[in-house]
Design a protein around this nucleic acid. Structure first.
Lengths: 134, 134
DNA sequence: CCGGATCCGTTTCGATACTG
DNA sequence: CAGTATCGAAACGGATCCGG
């Protein structure tokens, strides 16, 4: 049976407060699964986020400690965004969303190979995400 | 390395389109973890959703096939909402959000016992959610 | 009463144009 | 390339009303 003290159960709303809008998780997906890391690359995503919204969400996610921002040491004009540990720890959330979507829309674009791997050994996949540099 | 065909990778946005707003996942949480099943019970949640927003989200989630609505056979005036299979299959998403929140805010209200159980044997917990009647 | 629908002031979002 | 500024559109929240 469910918990009695309903008032104090708010882990879901804690998470939604951090990334529960229309765009934040898409940015995190870009970083985690599509290897993107610059403002311009996020803009290229098929969902077509507006520039002001993107800037706002990047700022908020940085404030939340989910991603961090720094200049490319090899190209001072390039700004790079990267997931922090806290952001990388969102991998299971993204993965379960991808699995659910694939179950109910097989044509949603998740590669079969990726799905198989996520099912067989998700921890291995997460480990790879973490180890990825540049 | 990330996939090349970025255009066609949209499982995350598929999911967000279904429940990626401020309220839908909170309703699903109420159904899945707090044993709520009526309009009035959803209104009592600490996030204080407005009546018009609640009605709209319930309708949308029903349209998406995530929950269904029917009259209480034992009380014709009572309307009951319940998760469908498709809705129950969102359990891993909710669970990973709860785990993430608990990791970064231990005071967010997830009972230690629940967390332990989710970590030890999540499938067992999901099975219980599924088997729950009334 | 319960489960909404309607109206309306306010906040937030987002498309576009523009800038350092 | 990486953002701001502006301004109309949409969503939200609160109050109130309505039907069974």
């Amino acid at each position: 049976m469910p918990a009695k003290n309903r008032r104090s159960f708010c882990p879901v709303s804690f998470a939604l407060d951090k990334f529960g809008d229309k765009w934040s998780l898409l940015i995190i997906r870009d970083l985690m699964f599509l290897g993107k890391e610059t403002y311009g690359e996020f803009l290229e995503s098929s969902e077509e986020i507006a520039t002001n919204i993107l800037a706002d969400r990047l700022k908020r996610l940085e404030t939340e400690g989910i991603l961090l921002k720094f200049r490319d040491p090899e190209n001072g004009r390039r700004v790079i965004y990267r997931l922090t540990e806290k952001g990388l720890d969102l991998a299971p959330v993204l993965i379960s969303m991808i699995q659910w979507s694939s179950q109910y829309d097989p044509d949603c674009g998740a590669p079969k190979q990726l799905l198989q791997r996520l099912q067989d050994d998700p921890d291995d996949f997460i480990a790879e995400i973490r180890s990825r540099e540049s």
